[in-house]
């Protein structure tokens, strides 16, 4: 008769072979950050400012525009969230919409709550390629968050770029995130070059005096120098697909259009497999992709 071996109850979780069994435990370790301020953006979005918990604790590498962090709420779980800004003192800004258990817990966290941070992950916006070019920046809804740090950079270093068009869409006037900042951009005056910040909503209310429609309708009718332009898009995937196609029609090359994709992510370092889009690990090869790389993939349903 075969009996179960005595050592069978040996916990498999404990059996790890140095170098061979990749524990990856260290790669999953969050760094403790404290919430130092909490700002309500819209009815369902909150911006958290996060600073390392204490001076002794380690600090995550400084994120570049378009990168993301994994944010962990004690005992609840962890989600990827794009970095929307860095304060002068290095504090991280993350804007979160209440959609699931973890994001609700993040939104409900108070000043002083300790959040786990891992990052920064992913490939950011192609900042090096942007210099001296005309920029078309298109944001749908909270898609503005991953673009915010980039737009602040563009505003700060305005003279590094040619014409700048920023198109922002939201469902309703109440759903426009960072509204005060958008209005401040609209008041900016520069000597040279176009600096145009446009805002549109799907559904207006009584007080709305702006435009109504889809964000892609804000795109310029024509471009004077499409070969010197670069487009940066973030929003719902269907919006990004349409926007990218419109931009191709305006003369932009596929390789000059960049999109930020969203997928389920557990590890963020190309190991858990969840974020795969065909050959790509979105966490590692993205989340920012050139349209050239992903156009054919985005056109396949449920890929």
């Amino acid at each position: 008769m075969v009996t179960i071996a005595k050592e069978v109850n040996l916990s498999q979780a404990e059996v790890q072979l140095k170098g061979v069994v990749a524990g990856a435990g260290d790669q999953y370790l969050p760094v403790a950050y404290s919430v130092t301020s909490r700002k309500r953006e819209t009815a369902d979005t909150v911006t958290l400012t996060l600073k390392p918990k204490d001076s002794r604790s380690s600090v995550c590498p400084r994120p570049r525009p378009g990168q993301f962090n994994m944010l962990y709420v004690f005992g609840v779980g962890e989600i990827p969230v794009s970095v929307c800004g860095i304060e002068p003192d290095g504090a991280l800004l993350h804007t979160i919409r209440r959609v699931g258990a973890v994001s609700v817990a993040l939104c409900d966290s108070k000043v002083g709550t300790v959040i786990g941070v891992r990052g920064a992950y992913g490939v950011g916006w192609p900042v090096a390629r942007m210099r001296q070019r005309s920029l078309i920046i298109l944001a749908g809804g909270l898609g503005l968050a991953p673009l915010l740090m980039l737009i602040r950079h563009v505003v700060r270093c305005r003279s590094d770029f040619a014409d700048i068009t920023i198109c922002i869409g939201a469902r309703t006037p109440q759903d426009v995130p960072f509204l005060r900042e958008i209005l401040s951009w609209q008041r900016l005056k520069y000597d040279a070059g176009l600096f145009d910040v446009r805002l549109i909503v799907d559904r207006a209310d009584r007080d709305w005096r702006g435009e109504v429609g889809v964000v892609t309708s804000l795109l310029p009718r024509s471009l004077t120098a499409p070969e010197c332009s670069l487009a940066l898009i973030c929003g719902p995937e269907v919006m990004m697909r349409h926007a990218a196609s419109d931009l191709v029609r305006l003369g932009l090359s596929h390789c000059d259009i960049y999109l930020s994709l969203e997928r389920n992510m557990k590890c963020a370092f190309g190991l858990c497999g969840h974020c795969q889009l065909n050959r790509y690990f979105v966490c590692r090869d993205g989340p920012i992709f050139s349209f050239e790389k992903v156009e054919s993939l985005l056109n396949v349903k449920d890929l």
């Binding site: 979780a13 059996v15 990749a22 524990g23 403790a32 918990k53 004690f74 709550t113 300790v114």
Partner: peptide, 18 residues
């Protein structure tokens, strides 16, 4: 080599922090 379940880390709460 890559067991089905692996403990990655454990965190302990101390007041508001952990």
């Amino acid at each position: 080599l890559d067991p089905n379940r692996k403990l990655l880390w454990r965190a302990k709460r101390e007041g508001e922090s952990w």
